[in-house]
Simulated assay, not measured.
Amino acid sequence: MNMSTPKKRIIETASLLFHQQGYNSTGINQIISEANVAKSSFYEHFKSKDDLCIAFLNARHDYWFAELNAYCAKSKSTKKRILSAFDFIQHMNEKENFRGCSFLNTLSEISREQGAILAVIQAHKNDLRAFFEKEVGEKLLSEHIYLLFESSIIESQLFQSNELVEKAKKIVNTLI
Rank of each mutant, 00 (worst) to 15 (best):
F46A: 10
E133Q: 15
K76D: 08
V136K: 05
A123H: 12
K74E: 15
H61V: 03
K134R: 07
A85C: 04
C72N: 09
M92E: 05
D127Q: 14
S111Y: 06
K95F: 00
K39G: 01
N36M: 07
R112K: 10
A119V: 02
Q114P: 04
L83V: 12
L107M: 14
K125L: 15
Q157V: 02
I82C: 00
D50Y: 05
L107H: 08
D62W: 07
L68K: 03
I110F: 03
D62H: 11
E138F: 07
K134H: 15
F42V: 00
I154P: 01
N58D: 12
A119K: 09
A130Q: 12
K76E: 10
E67T: 14
Y43D: 08
I110N: 03
S142H: 04
H45S: 06
F65V: 04
F88T: 11
Y146H: 12
E94G: 07
Q122Y: 10
K49G: 07
H124I: 04
A116S: 15
N58A: 13
D50Q: 11
N97E: 14
G137R: 08
K47W: 08
S40T: 12
F46W: 06
Y146D: 02
I89R: 01
Y43M: 02
L141W: 04
Q90C: 08
L104N: 09
H61P: 02
A59D: 13
L148D: 03
R112H: 13
E96G: 01
S102L: 10
E150G: 14
K79P: 02
D50G: 05
S77W: 02
L68A: 03
A85G: 02
C72F: 05
H91Q: 09
I121V: 09
L148T: 02
N105K: 09
C72H: 07
S102N: 05
A123T: 14
S33K: 04
Y63S: 11
E133P: 00
V120H: 04
H144N: 06
K79C: 01
S142I: 13
A59Y: 09
A130C: 02
F56H: 11
S75W: 06
T106C: 14
N58L: 07
F65K: 07
Y63K: 13
A55G: 03
L83P: 01
N126M: 15
A55M: 11
I110V: 12
A55T: 07
Y71L: 03
A66Y: 10
H91C: 04
W64G: 13
Q157I: 06
L141M: 10
G100R: 01
K134T: 15
Q122C: 09
K79H: 14
Y146Q: 05
I110K: 06
V37W: 03
A73V: 07
E133M: 07
L83M: 03
H61S: 12
K49V: 15
E94H: 03
G115F: 01
E34N: 05
S102K: 01
I82G: 00
E94C: 03
N36L: 11
Y146R: 07
F65I: 04
F42W: 00
I154C: 10
K139R: 10
A59G: 10
F88N: 13
G100C: 05
L83Q: 03
I117R: 06
S102C: 07
M92T: 04
S75C: 14
T78Q: 11
V136A: 03
A85W: 00
E44H: 15
A123W: 01
D51A: 15
H45V: 10
G137S: 08
